[in-house]
């Protein structure tokens, strides 16, 4: 790998830009594909574009030679709304799964660096926070406050985004009320149907860490299935 290739890959990753590295397995070609373009033949560029879209690195053949495309998509991101008891184990699990985690809670007493030492904390109102972060197709949004004043604005932004996972904590009854409010706010059935509620896979656990595990497992399922 050329030092220049390494530098470009690292720069792209630090700025959340998707990038692919394409090389021949005899070491003769070493190129970076960014914004769908790079110094490569068109058929090879097409392979790289498809690989980025599918988030899948793989080998391939082109004109008798063996090639390899390695995908470097932006890291997954989890936005947790609510600095509550479930948030602590969820943040730890998500970090272990490779997510960049942001904790959003405008209530200063909840989201303290002392209670949440290892996570980026945002104390803006949830809709402003999510708009500022920019929710993309590699982002999961989880609302945990139980408070419609905080959860609903976050869900409004999440449901208008390409977030691959949107989950909201609360019982079936709580969710039925939430659905009514979202309908009133103008969201249709398809949009509202994206919300995972009750949140998490049905693992049967009740402890905070068990619920966090159920959420993390459901996020993983949403990513791949």
């Amino acid at each position: 790998m050329k030092a220049e290739t390494l530098a470009r890959l690292r720069a792209a990753r630090s700025e959340r830009r998707p990038v692919a590295r394409v090389a021949t397995l005899d070491g003769s070609v070493d190129a970076v594909v960014e914004d769908g373009e790079g110094p490569l033949p068109e058929p090879v560029l097409e392979v790289a574009r498809a690989a980025l879209k599918q988030n899948r690195s793989h080998d391939f053949e082109h004109e008798g030679g063996r090639w390899f495309v390695q995908v470097f998509n932006p890291p997954l991101r989890l936005i947790v709304v609510g600095a509550v008891h479930i948030s602590q184990p969820l943040i730890g699990m998500a970090s272990g799964l490779g997510y960049d985690v942001t904790l959003v809670d405008p209530r200063g007493a909840f989201a303290t660096a002392q209670r949440f030492p290892d996570v980026e904390i945002c104390d803006e109102w949830p809709d402003d926070a999510l708009e500022a972060l920019g929710v993309d197709g590699r982002t999961a949004v989880v609302t945990l406050t139980h408070d419609p004043k905080l959860d609903d604005p976050a869900l409004h932004v999440a449901l208008r985004s390409e977030a691959f996972y949107v989950g909201a904590l609360g019982s079936r009854r709580t969710h039925a009320q939430r659905v009514e409010r979202l309908v009133e706010a103008g969201f249709d059935e398809a949009a509202i149907g994206r919300i995972r509620a009750p949140i998490g896979l049905d693992l049967g656990g009740r402890a905070p860490a068990e619920i966090a595990l159920a959420i993390a497992a459901q996020m993983t399922e949403a990513l791949y299935r």
């Binding site: 988030n55 998509n73 799964l97 490779g98 990513l223």
Partner: peptide, 21 residues
């Protein structure tokens, strides 16, 4: 690509750059 490997990919690229430097 396993996404849990994303953070790891960064660590490896960073280490390669550090060692080269």
């Amino acid at each position: 690509m396993a996404d849990a490997a994303v953070g790891e990919a960064d660590a490896i690229l960073d280490r390669a750059a550090d060692w080269a430097a």
